[in-house]
Each structure stands twice: as C-alpha cells, then as structure tokens.
C-alpha cells in the first residue's frame, strides 16, 4: 500500500533556503551544531578553529574529495580508515570527519552509510563527529531520504545505513537527558554551498 506521508508526517519545506532554515531549527532542538559555509576553503578554516578550541590531539577521516581538501587544514595527525585501522587508535582520536548520504530538513537528521561515512565505527566511536555535506544533499523529508537510499544503492546496499538524529543521548537515569552516552557527545554538521 502507498502511504499518505504528505498528510501524516510533521510538516516540512521543499524550497532550498526554507529547508536549510528548518534543518537549522531542528538541529538547535537536538543540540546538533549546524554550520553553513560558502566555499570548501571555509570548511578547513572552521575545522582549524575547532581544533584549537577543543585542543584536538588527532582526528580520523576517510577519503572523499570534500574530506581530503578539508582535513589538510587541520594541524593534527589524521587516521584514515579506508584501508582498515586499529580500533584502539580510532578510540583515541579527538574527532572524526565524514561524508554522508543526505541531510533531512524535516527532522534535522543525517543519513549516512558504511560507504559514505568511512565504515561503521568512524561516525560512532570518536567523541566528536563532524559531517560534511553539500548543497544538493539536503532533502525535504524522511520518505525522500529512504527512497533515495533505494535508488542510489539497490541492489548493492552498504552493509550499514544509519539515520543519525542529534548526538548520542540517554535518559535512563530519572529520565534526565544526558548527551554522549556511548557515541559522540558532539555532532557538528557543515553544509557547504559552493563546491
């Protein structure tokens, strides 16, 4: 059966600027840090500032045109996960920088997979996860995002696809929200408009 998503799910936007604004609002609710930059060079500058602010010792990333260009600007060693890595080393890094499949305006979520985010652990083990996304990756809603996963990958799906909505959290003690239960305490999403 076809589902009447348009009249069921929370309202969303379809025009680019409105989608970005909605995504920014949802991110604020989720305590995700959302940053919009214009050029690829600005990603590097932003990461560089973060590295100083948070006193990064090392980072981890995987190779994509966008991550390659951005990681150069970070003045600490980078562990590349593409060809395999030691878990103990990944556990020590200060932050990870990955790509993604889509940003979802409706919910402030990131869709990522073992193929677009450097495997399974890179986006979940380090304490600060930084997602790089491009202008064409933002989509209006969840149904579009899942349809996109099928169109993009079927039948050779990545072994893991994860819809990430905000940093890791728990309410298991007296229903009080605590960020960074087991996964990243911080989630930063950088959207670059001109690539």
């Amino acid at each position: 059966m076809t589902i009447d998503f348009q009249n069921i799910l929370p309202k969303t936007e379809t025009e680019y600027t409105a989608m970005v604004n909605l995504f920014a609002n949802k991110s604020a609710d989720l305590t995700t840090r959302f940053v919009k930059v214009f050029t690829q060079r600005e990603i590097g500058l932003y990461l560089n500032t973060l590295a100083t602010q948070e006193k990064w010792v090392s980072i981890a990333s995987h190779h994509t045109p966008l991550t390659d260009e951005s990681v150069i600007a970070v003045p600490v060693p980078c562990l590349w996960t593409d060809q395999g890595y030691k878990i103990e080393e990944l556990e020590k890094v200060s932050a990870s920088i990955t790509g993604c499949d889509a940003l979802i305006a409706q919910t402030g979520s990131v869709m990522l997979s073992s193929r677009t985010a450097g495997g399974r652990a890179l986006s979940i083990l380090p304490p600060h996860h930084i997602v790089l996304a491009t202008k064409n990756q933002i989509v209006p809603d969840l149904p579009t995002a899942y349809r996109m996963i099928r169109e993009k990958y079927s039948p050779n799906y990545p072994s893991m696809v994860s819809l990430v909505t905000g940093p890791s959290r728990t309410g298991d003690i007296e229903r009080i929200l605590v960020l960074g239960a087991h996964g990243p305490r911080k989630l930063t999403i950088i959207l670059v408009e001109e690539v």
């Binding site: 890595y85 073992s114 399974r120 696809v161």
Partner: peptide, 24 residues
C-alpha cells in the same frame, strides 16, 4: 516510545562487512 521525534540512531544492517568496506 521515548517522546522524541526520532531517536538518535536508526540503523539498518544488511549483512556482514562488505569486501570494499574498512570495518564491521
């Protein structure tokens, strides 16, 4: 379940690590 719009992680597993993937 949790009074949230979405929980933080909704993950799909389609199999073991694929040859081209670095971990899993």
């Amino acid at each position: 379940g949790a009074a949230q719009n979405l929980t933080a992680y909704n993950t799909l597993y389609s199999g073991p690590k694929r040859p081209e993937e670095p971990d899993g």
